[in-house]
Amino acid sequence: MKGVSHNGKALLVGVGLYIVILGPIIPVIIQSFAFQWHWPDLLPRVWWWSVRADSTFPLAWDYVLSPYSHVFEAAGNTLFISLSVTLLALILCLPAARVLVSPHFKWKTQILSLFTLPLIVPEMALALAFLAVFIPLGLAGTYTGIIVAHLIPVLPYMMRVLVSVYQGLNPAVVEQAQLLGASRWQRLVHITIPLLLPGILAGCLFTLLVSSNIFLITFLVGQGRVETLPTLLFSKIGGGALDATAAGLTLIAMIPGFILLLATERHIRDYQRVGAVGRSIDGSHR
């Protein structure tokens, strides 16, 4: 009996979520295949496939998937930048997080609150200040400049995840291994790393997510010279209109999200049981 009502509720919540979250994607899909979709038609009057053969110019998906749309370049840049940012953030945060959880270390609160600053300061302030400093240094409009700039919004998330990972690590296990005669190296490879790995992966996924969704910093620091999926999308819909190619680009800009969703979900599920990661998931809001 209880199971039935559970299913009923689940159905209700589920249908609601589908309509609100995924429902709006349907008209975008329709728009991406439309050639003429004018007021007040509920469906396009002329579809893209019925005219594409006659057009000398690549229309809708023909344009989006052509090299001229720069979509592949932008996707590559997005991936490259977010991977570099993640790697850098990991290298910077891993040793630091270990120190922060050490019981002998007194400055933990102060340092962690320093790390909340980038979450509070307006992104525009960061981006414009970076730009002004990067231009004379020759970093504006370069990958290096963008990667360095992305570090700031990303570090708070990486730090929090890693600190909670270290906190969840039971020192007794490592001590036990030590008592059993495991060398420092053996302890690291066989105990510490396997225990930390799921958490590190989760932190990396969050940073990847945050970095690949950043628009404003990339737009301003990149000066139009480095295109990523968000900046490409902005150049298309910045005026507040959505034509077929803009709709196609919107759909493509969703793909990394879908992939990351599947990836995070797999890793986070086990990891959540450890608890305390709640806030680390904040990462996904940008």
Partner: peptide, 14 residues
Amino acid sequence: PENESALMQLFQNS
């Protein structure tokens, strides 16, 4: 409208 594509959207929608 901020730009040409937004201008066109208004025109398309009558």
